[in-house]
Amino acid sequence: MGKGRGESLLVETGYSMQFSQILQYLLSGLSIGAIYALIGVGFSIIYNATGIINFAQGEFVMLGGMLTLFFLEMLKFPLWLAIPCAIAASTAAGILFERLAIRPLRRPTPINLVILTIGGSILIRGLAMLVWGKDTHAIPSFSGDEPISIGGATILPQHLWILGVTLLMVSVNKFYFNRTISGKAMRACAYNRRAASLVGIDVRRMVMLSFAISSAMGAVAGIIVAPLTMVAYDVGGMLGLKGFCAAIVGGMSSGIPTVMGGLILGVLESMGAGLISSGYKDAIAFIVLLLLLFLRPQGLFGKPESERV
C-alpha cells in the first residue's frame, strides 16, 4: 500500500526528480568508490612487488584515521600538521610490519604469508583497541560541512577532497612507476624477481618500499574518509574487504583498472541500495565480485597473462 503511494508521487514529480535521484546515487557511489580504489591500489602494489595479498591493508586505513585523531586531540596539533604526522606514523608502522613479520619468515609460502597478514591485522586492531578504546570518534571536515548542490544532488566539500586526493594519488603513483628509477625497479620485481635481482635490484628493499607506499596510501584513504564516516578501532575490516574487491575487479593492477574497479563497486552499491533494495546492498557488490572471479579471473579490463603494474 505504502509502495503504491510512493510510486504515484514519483510519477507526479516526473523525470527531474528521477534524474537528481540517480545523480545523487552516482555521486555518493563515486566518492565511496574512490576510497575503495585507494585501498585497492594499496593491495595491488604489495601484491605486485611480493606476491602477497596483504590482509592487514584495512588496518592501515584505520591507523590513518585514528592517528590523525591522536595528533589532533592528544597532542593538540592543527589539522594541517596532524595529517602528515599520521601518514608518517602509519608508514612507519607499515615498514615495521614488513621488517618484523614478513621478512623474518623462513619459508615464505603464499599460505604462510596470507595467514601472517591476517594475524598482523588482528594484532594491529587489538593494539588500537587497547590504546584508543572502543569508542567511535569524529574528525572535523577539512573545509566545512556546507552542502554543495549539483543538478539537484548534493555533496559535501569533503567529497571533493576525496575525489581530488584520489586523483592526485593515482597520478603520483603512475608517475612513480613509469618515470622514476625505483618505480621501474619495482615493476621489474613484479615481472620477474630473480631477473630483477640479477640485474642488481635490491628486491628486499623494493618489498619494504612497497609496504611503505601502500601503508601510506591506506592511511591517506583513512584520513580523507574519516570526517564523513568517523573512525573506530574496527573500521579496517570491511573497508579492507571492499578495497580487495576493487583490486580483484581491476585485475590486481596498481593503476587505472583498480581505480575503475573501486568506482564501479561504489556506484553499484549505491545504485543497488537506492534502486533495488538497501538490504542487499553488500550482497550486490559481492555477487559482482563472484561473477567476475568466475567469468573474468584476470580482471574486468585485463587480457589473460597481461602485465600487472
Binding site: G2, K3, R5, G6, L9, L10, T13, M17, Q21, Q24, Y25, S28, G29, S31, I32, V225, L228, T229, M230, D234, V235, G237, M238, L239, E269, S270, M271, A273, G274, S278, G279, K281, D282
Partner: peptide, 24 residues
C-alpha cells in the same frame, strides 16, 4: 509506512537510502 529501508551496522554512507526516502 511508505519506505522500509535498512543499513548495515558498519555502513559509512546512507545517502542512497535517504535519497530514496526523500523522493517518497
Amino acid at each position: 509506512i511508505l519506505a522500509d529501508e535498512v543499513y548495515g551496522p558498519k555502513d559509512t554512507d546512507m545517502t542512497a537510502q535517504l535519497t530514496k526516502i526523500r523522493s517518497i
